[in-house]
Design a protein around this nucleic acid. Structure first.
Length: 512
DNA sequence: TTCCGACAGTGGGGTCGCAAT
DNA sequence: ATTGCGACCCCACTATCGGAA
């Protein structure tokens, strides 16, 4: 299949807003793909490369290349060339990768270049990613979409499912079963604004501590233990103490879901930054493990001793978990019977926060284990802090925010009346707010830059955030975690904005 | 007809590791 | 030795479509 066809279909998908039409366009293309093209076409039209990331970013793509006049590239040729790019390593590799990418771009027409650019930077912006590719695949093959989704969850790979499905038809889906050693897409939680809201929605539920660590899926088959992250990356080699912990459990074959977190000598959580740094360390694991040991904390069992537990209600999965995993290695929890036990749930949240954790996750006891964002049977609740900060600058937005000032630079007051930047945010704005702030900030401009504008520090905005973390980037030595706009405070003057000092006082754990 | 679940988009900060300087 | 860059962790929120109620 010609690569130009994919580029054209991607453009058509981007041009329509109707999901049904996007799905139909994808399905038509999938039907026409030859068997060998499928493993390439599927990820491409889901906006990804089958090779994953290739170490190519905006920097390497910034040099324009004259496009070819006629489309000659095939899908398989593009794939082969990108595989070659990914294989380059060692000294001078940046230049070599740049050269290979340049050659590929030179062989591509303008339309093909645009699509390639999107694939390489991960910004195809066609309004269709994995989920719509699944829908398209279902439509192309006549398989029920729910069955395809489940197979993708079990395979942990859309590509593998697509290949089997297009080669052998819907019956191929039966081949995808939960297998120890093969990671599955993890179940995710939605947010709720309060324990009361969550309890109301879920009825009978477990209330579990939400630990601020890294999600981990642990597979054990006899002596073989494998560890996977939320995106199914294999991190077995980085966390030897988790392998040891899994081998100590009295079960030969299982898949467990949990969190890995660094705790101090009192059992209180160390900062997320410390846990993330540890889990990210690959080179000198022994030293990292000595300095920041981590602990597994399990909350679900997907498979134990050959029994697939995914479709069991959470209550039963947890019974199995509790028989296999001793209490210190399980997440702390309580049960709540809907509204009647609201006080129980709220007390548990308060206790969790006192113990230094992030919040709670409430889980319906009757819900099966489902991947992705489908189903709101897990609801997380975290406390939210707010501040009144001053807008110091704003950056021009991209994509649907092109032409709007989007990303705000936020400052808190210093004792001398100046402002210390605490971070940025682009979250929480409605379209109306984007329009309004673009106009309002334009009146306050003191300097225009390539990326946006700096403004007179006069506009006060209420910002919600999850907590404070250390920063080497910002002058106060701290930055806000997950900052988002709540509303503008035109009733407040910059002199009434919150101070750096008050912020630090409110989060003593960060500076201690 | 209205409501709501699911999706995509829009980017935030940090850390690690590699390559370039 | 330091710096720049990309990958991958954590993530909130809004707009929109389309099926459910």
């Amino acid at each position: 299949m010609l690569f130009a066809r994919l580029a054209r279909v991607s453009q058509e998908v981007a041009a329509t807003s109707a999901r049904s039409r996007k799905t139909a366009l994808l399905a038509e293309l999938f039907r026409d793909a030859e068997a060998d093209d499928v493993p390439i076409v599927i990820p491409y039209l889901a906006g990804r490369l089958p090779q994953g990331r290739l170490g190519i970013g905006w920097k390497l793509l910034s040099r324009p290349v004259a496009p070819a006049t006629d489309p000659t590239l095939t899908v398989r040729e593009v794939d082969a060339r990108l595989t070659a790019v990914g294989a380059v390593s060692g000294s001078g590799s940046q230049a070599e990768r740049g050269r290979l990418v340049g050659e590929l771009l030179a062989a591509a027409t303008a339309d093909e270049q645009r699509f390639l650019f999107g694939l390489l930077t991960g910004e195809v912006r066609q309004g269709a990613l994995d989920a719509l590719a699944v829908e398209g695949l279902a439509e192309a093959t006549g398989a029920p979409a729910a069955d395809v989704r489940r197979a993708v969850m079990l395979a942990g790979s859309l590509r593998a499912v697509a290949r089997a499905l297009l080669a052998d038809g819907p019956s191929a889906l039966d081949r995808f079963r939960l297998t120890v050693g093969r990671p599955v897409l993890p179940m995710l939680a939605h947010s709720a604004s309060s324990v009361a809201e969550a309890v109301e929605k879920l009825g009978l539920c477990a209330v579990e501590e939400k630990l601020d660590g890294i999600r981990v899926q642990v597979h054990r088959d006899g002596d073989d233990v494998r560890l996977y992250t939320r995106t199914l990356d294999d991190i077995t080699d980085r966390l030897p103490e988790l392998t040891s912990a899994a081998l100590e459990l009295k079960g030969e074959r299982f898949i467990l879901d949990g969190e890995v977190i660094a705790l101090d000598e009192n059992g209180r959580p160390r900062s997320f930054q410390e846990t993330a740094g540890r889990v990210g360390s690959r080179v000198d694991v022994a030293t990292a493990a000595h300095e920041v040991p981590v602990s597994p904390v399990f909350f679900d069992a997907l498979s134990v001793d050959g029994r697939d537990l995914l479709d069991l209600p959470f209550a039963e999965r947890h019974d199995v978990l509790a028989r296999l995993v001793p209490e210190p290695m399980r997440v702390r929890r309580t049960l709540a019977h809907g509204r009647d036990d609201l006080a129980t749930a709220e007390e548990f949240l308060a206790g969790t926060l006192r113990r230094g954790h992030e919040g709670v996750v409430l889980k319906a006891l009757d819900a099966p284990y489902t991947a992705g964002r489908r189903g709101a049977s897990w609801l997380k609740v975290k406390p939210v802090h707010t501040l009144d900060l001053v807008v110091l600058a704003a950056e021009w937005g991209h994509g649907r925010r092109t032409g709007k000032l989007s990303n705000l630079h936020l400052g808190a007051r210093n004792p001398d009346g100046s402002f210390a930047m605490l971070g940025k945010t682009f979250k929480g704005m409605t379209d109306a707010m984007l329009t309004w702030q673009t106009e309002r900030l334009s009146e306050l401009v003191v300097e225009e830059t390539r990326w946006g504008v700096t403004v007179r520090p006069e506009l006060v905005v209420e910002i919600a955030y999850d907590g404070l973390q250390r920063s080497t980037r910002y002058p106060a030595g701290v930055t806000l975690r997950f900052a988002r706009v709540v509303r503008y405070r035109e009733d407040k003057s910059p002199a009434e904005a919150d101070t750096v000092e008050a912020l630090l006082d409110a989060h003593p754990e960060v500076t201690r």
